[in-house]
Amino acid sequence: MQTLESLLLGFIGIMIVNNLVFTKFLGTCPYLGVSGRIDTAFGMGCAVTFVVTLAGALTWTLDYLVLIPCGLDVMRYVCYILVIAAMVQLVEMYVHKFFPVLYESFGIFLPLISTNCAILGMCLFINLWGIDNLPEAVVLSAGAGLGFTLAICIMAGIRENLELADVPAALRGAPITLITAGLLTLAFMGFAGMIR
């Protein structure tokens, strides 16, 4: 029971309390760039969740089966990024061929996210936090992905309404998006310390 509880706490923790976008600035590029409309934002979020879960599991396995036993810590970054890039390619081809409907909804974002810092960042954090079992790595990365989806959807919702607002000319576009992001971060700080 202890493990189930800690898994659940970890999941909620990384999704809301330690949300990667709000506390670690990971995935800020798509968060600011692809958050113009809520449906594209949701598609992007789904793609990231899908890839980060797979990448978290794969890199953890690679780390514990190959890199750590062989003492190849120095190759970690190279291996991680190659695994992620190769995986994104394979997933894209697979989804394109077998699930054309799914591909239309979020497949177009897949090539974009091999260079998304949230993916590599999450894999690095799993290594940094010393997560030592596969279920926990999978649950944490899925939580991170969902947290990213949550963040980007909230942002897209706000930005859709911002289009109707009278923003000073100089602040239109990226500046007001960043300021909105700052205020959102402030709101999410209320969750800090809820789960340790």
Binding site: N18, T23, W129, A192, G193, R196
Partner: peptide, 17 residues
């Protein structure tokens, strides 16, 4: 002679380890 003991340890804090 033993002057003391020291060790590194960690735990969850407010925002991170």
């Amino acid at each position: 002679r033993t002057a003391g003991w020291a060790f590194a340890c960690e735990g969850g804090g407010f925002s991170d380890k």
